[in-house]
Design a protein around this nucleic acid. Structure first.
Length: 885
RNA sequence: GGGCGGUUAACUCAGUGGGAGAGUGCUACCUUCACACGGUAGAAGUCACUGGUUCAAAUCCAGUACCGCCUACCA
């Protein structure tokens, strides 16, 4: 081990670049399609190709990397499938904006040229986000990288579409959909974002055609009255029973429309009468399917009023609204305008107000698919973690509505349907047909629409593995082991993957789904560019290093709670990286001449502190393993942090100094070296999934040539390392040290002053422990001498510390602040009295003695005894001090 | 309207039935040869409120208040 050393400070940037390349060069990220090892697989939630790494990505991918590195080290054939999503509307918008800067639009280019242009854009900028993932250390299986528009994945899309169609699960028809007048496309229900807006409720009078008065309706969108085809009332509403079937005259339009009865209408809202505009409202559209009232389209795809609107033709919907209101007022039809708060649907991409719009679209009939998706979770084939999301998942699937999958944009998977000009037949096929199977005609036009981006995303867990081909990768890695994603895409993506996976593969796409929270700023606000509170993850990596950044994310990830990111915390964990680095540096300085080989675990040859740290390490291994198995990232991070800083550094390294420095006990020194090497080694391994770079950097020096920590075997808890005896004995020694330090601190005794201490205990075993820990106490409490004694009187001029029945006397000479000592003892005594009273109260209750578990009662009795002894000791000490003070 | 989550130290948060915890911050002392990105000690909380279950409640149940999120066709 000659000359092994590391520099004074860890340099994250150099280490990150160096080790990432090192892992890539050795192909460590790559999993074999055919391996004897048990498979463990994750497919990445593919970020949009247009994406830039934000905190959400950073969290999501850090957690995946923690899990994949953990399982890889455990000996699994661990495969993390990377890739990106073509993100139809988002990407098209980006390229359209680029064109706009050149003064062009997509129609100037035409479909084919435009798509070429998007591909150019993709080739140029599409790798940005994957490179950013590399910066944070993601160990993806890069040679497998996929893109949703790849040839293979496109084939999967066509295959799935055709199967669904042939099974009657895809249909086409004229329906009312959410239409974005800016993007000129339909979007699904999920893609509409609702915002609460302050609007108005206009009350309008519609006269009965027979002159018998009028009926009052209220609306938030008066311009839609131009398309009214009925007025509806509730059939139970006695105010209107004799009006049902009558006609009213639609103002401004001057046309008769009927009064109809439908259960949909609530009687106690407004007047109980509703205007019905089937072309502009989904609920009204549904009513028009139950009643023969027809439908009048009043807008075009840009939400401009059309030829059915008379004088209003050519007006934008909002302009038209103003004019309609003015005209209604003029005609005496407008009775009242009241302020009214309501939800307005916006396009999730461009925030334009959605216009419900009737058009020809393609839909997936999802109810039967949803049933199987629910059943799989009920049966436990897929586990949702944390389980509270199950309810949300079920609720959505139970009330699911058909999925509109067609989009009137150009960038995406074009729907594999062709129309024959000859016989006007329709061909649905995975391959481009050359002629019509019905009429043999060759003039075929492919459907213009493309599929919703989420259609291809839904196939991601198997399309990336080669489906529809039965590849070895598919056999090995499907169903995948784990999906890690944000709860915000539970419906968009998770539920749809479940439906498609079960439909296509007849098996769930993943066994576990871990849903993490959103990343917010330190005050709990959603991060957004407009608020200016967003933290750029790469800036954090630059500033604090990827390891500190990743550890922070993991440490913050408690189940079911948002992650509040604060730069201070990242800095805090950078300090932890520094601490680890220096602990390793210290260790390496003292391991230069360490003997090779494992620690022989026979307790006779190990010192108490060696046994203790090994036992603590073992507990930490168990804790980290359990926590990661349960996806409790914060607990795993806390356990290893606590161990490394507060047990290894604060105690073991300090205890080890005299042994390691002193050459007078070579046998003991050798054992300490071996123990230290093992503890450091395993600590690094426990930390590696969280902090891959710094652990590799240290490992390479510690372990020498040839091995990477990435492919080393993750520690396992071992019964042979459990050592409650050592833990208990060290506990007493640490308490004695703590007791002296407390007295030193409270009584303002300078740290440089060496003290004389007597440990007094009636229990011989305790005295023996104190003797055994003599050197540790001398060193860590900075003592001149340590004696042990049987139960004894308080020595003159001593400050007293009490640990149960053990008393620690710190012999003080000269001027001593006895008033201070008195205050210190009184404070301690008060605390003990309080606890004692509580214990006494409990034990004096016969209910407690009879009903509480025996172990609990026993523990309480032990506590009572300890506290009684402690109080007695404190009071004796106090008597002495009162006399002096 | 329905649902879910939250309310614990100054701050940010862990903790799901048996002695209130962490990190940061704060106070005092320490330039001790791994680390001042450090060390030692200390101060600091009616665990939102009300009621209930229990021998025992921060933890379970019911309700209240406030804050967040999701969801929904009362125009």
């Amino acid at each position: 081990m000659e000359g092994k050393t590391i520099g004074k400070a860890f340099e994250p940037h150099a280490a990150e670049a160096k080790w990432y390349q090192y892992w890539l060069d050795r192909n460590y990220f790559h999993a074999s399609d055919t391996s004897d090892k048990p498979p463990f697989s994750i497919v990445i939630p593919p970020p949009n190709v247009t994406g830039m790494l934000h905190m959400g990505h950073a969290l999501n991918n850090t957690l995946q990397d923690v899990m994949i590195r953990y399982r890889r080290m455990q000996g699994y054939n661990a495969m993390w499938m990377p890739g990106t999503d073509h993100a139809g509307i988002a990407t098209q918008n980006v390229v359209e904006q680029e064109l706009a800067r050149e003064g062009k639009n997509r129609h100037d280019l035409g479909r084919e040229k435009f798509i070429e242009r998007v591909w150019e854009w993709k080739h140029k900028y599409g790798g940005v986000i994957t490179n950013q993932l590399k910066r944070i250390g993601c160990s993806c299986d890069w040679p497998r990288e996929r893109f949703t528009m790849d040839e293979g994945l496109s084939r999967a899309v066509r295959e799935a579409f055709v199967r669904l169609y042939n099974d009657g699960l895809i249909y086409q028809g004229d329906y009312i959909v959410n239409w974005c007048p800016r993007c000129h496309t339909a979007i699904s229900d999920l893609e509409v974002e609702y915002t609460e807006e302050q609007g108005h409720l206009w009350h309008i009078r519609y006269p009965y055609a027979d002159g018998s008065g009028d009926i009052v309706v209220a609306t938030t969108r008066p311009e839609t009255m131009l398309g009214d085809t009925a007025v509806a009332v509730n059939p139970q509403d006695s105010r209107y029973t004799d009006k049902i079937g009558k006609d009213v005259i639609l103002p401004l339009v001057n046309k008769n429309i009927p009064v109809i009865a439908d259960d949909y209408v609530t009687m106690d809202f407004g007047s109980g009468a509703v205007k019905i505009t089937p072309a502009c409202d989904p609920a009204d559209f549904a009513i028009a399917q139950r009643h023969p009232i027809g439908l009048v389209m009043i807008m075009d795809g840009s939400a401009v009023m059309n030829e059915n609107c008379g004088a209003y033709q050519g007006q934008d919907r909002y302009e038209c609204r103003k004019n309609v209101i003015a005209d209604l007022e003029k005609g005496g039809y407008l009775l009242q305008t009241e302020p009214y708060g309501h939800n307005v649907g916006k396009c999730y991409r461009c925030k334009t107000d959605i216009e419900p719009y009737v058009s020809k679209q393609w839909f997936v009939k999802v109810k039967p698919l949803a049933k199987t998706a629910m059943a799989a979770v009920i049966k436990g084939k897929t586990k949702i973690i944390p389980p509270m999301w199950e309810a949300t998942y079920f609720d959505w699937l139970e009330n699911i509505r058909d999925w509109c999958i067609s989009r009137q944009i150009w960038w995406g998977h074009r729907i594999p349907v062709w129309y024959c000009d000859g016989c006007s037949g329709m061909i649905v096929s995975t391959d481009d047909p050359s002629s019509c199977p019905t009429c043999k005609g060759t003039t075929l036009r492919q459907e213009e629409d493309v599929l919703d981006t989420w259609f291809s995303s839904a196939l991601w867990p198997f399309s990336t593995l080669g489906w529809p081909d039965q590849t070895p990768a598919l056999r090995t890695f499907y169903p995948t082991s784990l999906l890690v994603t944000g709860f915000d895409i539970l419906f968009f993506w998770v539920a749809r993957m479940m439906m498609m996976g079960l439909y296509v593969m007849k098996d769930v796409p993943f066994k576990d789904v871990y849903l993490h929270a959103l990343v917010r700023d330190e005050h709990g606000d959603k991060m957004s560019k407009s608020k200016g509170n967003s933290i750029d993850p790469l800036e954090m990596v630059d500033k604090y290093g990827a390891d500190a950044f990743r550890f922070t994310l993991a440490a913050f990830t408690a189940q079911g709670r948002d992650v509040r990111m604060s730069e201070d915390r990242i800095q805090g964990y950078k300090f932890f990286v520094n601490k680890l680095w220096n602990a390793a540096r210290f260790s390496l300085m003292n391991l230069e001449d360490a003997p090779a080989g494992e620690v022989p675990l026979d307790r006779a040859s190990l010192s108490l502190s060696d046994r203790w740290i090994l036992a603590r390490l073992n507990r930490t291994v168990a804790e980290v393993t359990r926590s990661l198995d349960e996806y409790k990232f914060n607990e795993a991070a806390a356990a290893v942090y606590q161990f490394v800083w507060h047990e290894l550094c604060d105690w073991y390294l300090e205890m080890g100094k005299p042994v390691l420095y002193g050459k007078d006990a070579p046998a003991q020194r050798k054992m300490a070296q071996r123990t230290l090497a093992r503890v450091l080694r395993e600590s690094l391994q426990l930390l590696h999934p969280f902090m891959p770079f710094v652990t590799e950097e240290i490992w390479q020096v510690l372990e020498g040539e040839g091995g990477s920590i990435m492919v080393s075997r993750f520690p396992e808890p071992a019964a042979s390392l459990e050592d409650p005896e050592a833990e208990e004995q060290m506990g007493l020694i640490m308490d004695v040290i703590g007791s002296v330090r407390n007295i030193r601190g409270e009584m303002n005794i300078p740290p440089s002053r060496k003290l004389r201490v007597i440990v007094s205990a009636a229990d011989e075993a305790k005295r023996a422990v104190a003797e055994r820990g003599r050197n540790l106490v001398l060193h860590l409490a900075n003592l001149e001498s340590l004696e042990t004694a049987d139960a004894m009187e308080e020595p003159k001029g001593a400050a007293t510390g009490v640990i149960g029945a053990v008393r620690v006397f710190v012999l003080l000479e000269g001027t001593v602040d006895w008033a201070g000592e008195k205050a210190r003892l009184e404070k301690e005594a008060a605390r003990v009295k309080k606890d004692l009273a509580q214990a006494q109260r409990k034990l004096s209750s016969s209910d407690f003695r009879e009903r509480a578990a025996a172990a609990v009662v026993l523990k309480e009795e032990q506590k009572l005894q300890d506290l009684t002894e402690k109080l007695a000791a404190l009071e004796r000490a106090l008597m002495k001090v009162r006399a002096l003070a």
